[in-house]
Design a protein around this nucleic acid. Structure first.
Lengths: 372, 372
DNA sequence: TCTACTTAAACAACGCTGTTGCCAAAGTGC
DNA sequence: GCACTTTGGCAACAGCGTTGTTTAAGTAGA
């Protein structure tokens, strides 16, 4: 039998697919425009479609309750442009961040605004049933009043398979190996569920928060471990087995100190050892060398830092990483290093965006019946 | 003014764009099918389009001379399927590989077969006029008889900007800095020209030669320098400034030996130093550590090795890199390490594919009026 | 040799897409 | 008030893939 089966290749595009693509595109521009709104003619310019086509698409979105008119611009000598805005309350998503010892949950509307938030302690090692119960409790609490909940996004430490929503051996918790989290949770909640790595969710959330669609950045997460989320040319890059972003075990020191993974000289080992001994500047420098490797290898424009360890002393890490990245730059283009905004809610927000992003054509997500 | 200008975002899709996409898709499947050919119904299964839609598309391709019927399959109880094949002679592309001391040129037909080949010594430092003259001579020699030459692809060591076709300071040859190679050559030849890094061209050629569309691999080129070409989920990844694949100056040894780039512990420095002292196994091991970093970071399925230094002792390098990659693997999936096929012609073939790939929707190429 | 059946591909009518041409609506400026 | 500018809806249209039907070209069995 052929190793490659039909229908897994690049899909052909028919008229419904075209319609969906253009509608998602317009919806994404409405989302980006936010409170300020955007006119039909501007949508036409941005999409390259004719104004009339945009009018039709906007009309359909209005009929579905996803968009609404909201005032008008100042006139430039003729009829003033009608401002269109996304209807944020037309849909909601729940985002769940499962960490080793805590659970953070948010309810997000279509605009990306968090409308409700919960947090609870959690023992990820307490077994699947206890964790599922905890998740269900938070989801129920958040969605008690709301309707129009499109789905639940769950982000947790990897490794896992985002397509199937199946966990591999979550670091330190071997009992999760092979657990079909997505399907188990979907059945329990009676709602669609998406599962992804915490770093991927964070990167997706940060990508959607950026004004421009394009651009490439790395989100480096330094907490109890070290991982990365990669956004390349505007799209979250997960790799074919959700393995991309394995940043912590990049070797940075041949024959260096032994790491818990069995190899030597991993960034994570070097970095965490420096943190443990209180030498944050040295940890930042090590992180910076790894970041500079990423920047060079992947032509990255921006480095964002997050995670509990970073949040404890953000200036030291931003400064330290920035210095190394600037020093190693081979191009004249400056690559900024910043702390990721969002703080403790960052991953949960990204988890909610796992559900919302496909509506805006920003999928790269394991939602059922999606190509990625 | 808005930092992001209209029409640079994700483009809307209208009917001509849809038609072009589907036609390119079918053409790509015809290309992949090669000598064996493919039937209309198989095309329909692979694209997800209806058989009737495929029939129409195939009809148009036949009218344009790009496809032809070529016999029929064995019957399975009814009318036998008509086999369709790409018409390889319907178009040709020239691929030029400019290296520091040599020029390799190929003439390639639509199927990817090399129909003519030339090689000549070259001094990349002899000035733009001399190099352009040499290129024009080879192009003229290759295209003397042929018509239907779609364009010329040029691959050379970076850094450069593939979108604008402008060189930056080619390592060791500062006089090329800022030279608009694409436009200068296009004017001289009177034909469309595409310019890209040698490693990118090689990776593109290797990607198109693979049977499956998807998959991620890294092509590592070890010659007078060390670089990489990255194919991620089936698409060549160049980065927004053609900077991706800067593999040689990944730091692998903090505070290691000084590299020509000014930093310390770069893979290129470590690797080439080992090569210079005849310790190929050590060079291979260093290369392997870098490769294992890539494999982990980018969830890569396959590592291909090429370049003159590798070709001098391929078994040593394949074995050495493979051992390290296997030893560092964190997943159960085996990542094969192989020598890249194509030998000295690899980059020139990839350069020709820079021209052809857009026809098959495999663009990711700086061709005029292309989105990437 | 004939008939029934199966499979492939073309033909015709269709629905839906974005596009084009035209016109009403809603402002500004003199 | 009038001329002009700009926005956006309405109607007709061309072109896309889809659906329903027919024709072509084989196999299998009596």
């Amino acid at each position: 039998m052929n190793p490659i089966s039909p229908h897994t290749g690049t899909p052909g595009v028919n008229l419904p697919a075209l319609r969906g693509h253009n509608a998602a595109l317009v919806l994404d521009l409405l989302r980006s425009a936010g409170e300020e709104g955007i006119s039909r003619l501007e949508l036409a310019e941005w999409t390259g479609l004719t104004p009339q086509a945009v009018s039709k698409i906007v009309g359909r979105l209005r009929d579905e309750g996803l968009a609404a008119e909201a005032g008008r611009r100042a006139s430039t000598g003729g009829k003033p442009r009608t401002v269109l805005r996304l209807a944020p309350e037309a849909g909601h998503a729940v985002g769940i961040h499962l960490d080793r010892d805590a659970l953070v949950a948010v309810l997000m509307d279509l605009s990306g605004a968090v409308v409700a938030e919960r947090a609870a302690p959690l023992d990820l090692g307490a077994g699947s049933d206890a964790v599922l119960t905890a998740v269900a409790r938070e989801v129920d609490a958040l969605t008690a009043v709301r309707e129009s909940v499109l789905g639940v996004g769950v982000a947790l430490p990897g490794p896992l398979d985002h397509r199937g929503g199946v966990l591999h051996q979550v670091t330190g918790f071997p009992e999760w190996d092979g657990f079909p989290l997505r399907d188990a949770l979907a059945e329990r909640l009676g709602a669609p569920v998406v599962v992804d790595k915490d770093t991927n969710a964070a990167a997706l959330g940060l990508a959607l928060a950026r004004p421009s669609g394009g651009g490439s950045f790395a989100y480096l997460h330094l907490g109890t471990g070290l991982g990365a989320g990669l956004v390349l040319s505007g799209a979250l890059y997960r790799g074919d087995r959700t393995g991309a972003g394995e940043f912590g075990h990049q070797v940075l020191q041949l024959d260096g100190a032994r790491c818990s993974c069995g190899n030597r000289g991993c960034i994570e080992a070097l970095c965490l050892e420096a943190v443990a001994s209180g030498e944050l500047a040295r940890a930042a420098r090590v992180l910076g060398e790894g970041a500079a490797n990423l920047v060079g290898l992947l032509d990255i424009d921006l480095v964002l830092l997050g995670g509990r360890t970073v949040e404890r002393a953000p200036e030291i890490f931003v400064r330290g990483v920035s210095d190394v990245v600037r020093g190693r730059a081979r191009s004249t283009v400056e690559v900024p290093v910043r702390q990721a905004e969002g703080g403790g809610r960052l991953v949960a927000e990204g988890a909610a965006q796992l559900v919302l992003a496909p509506l805006f054509g920003r999928a790269n997500v394991a939602f059922p019946a999606n190509r990625n």
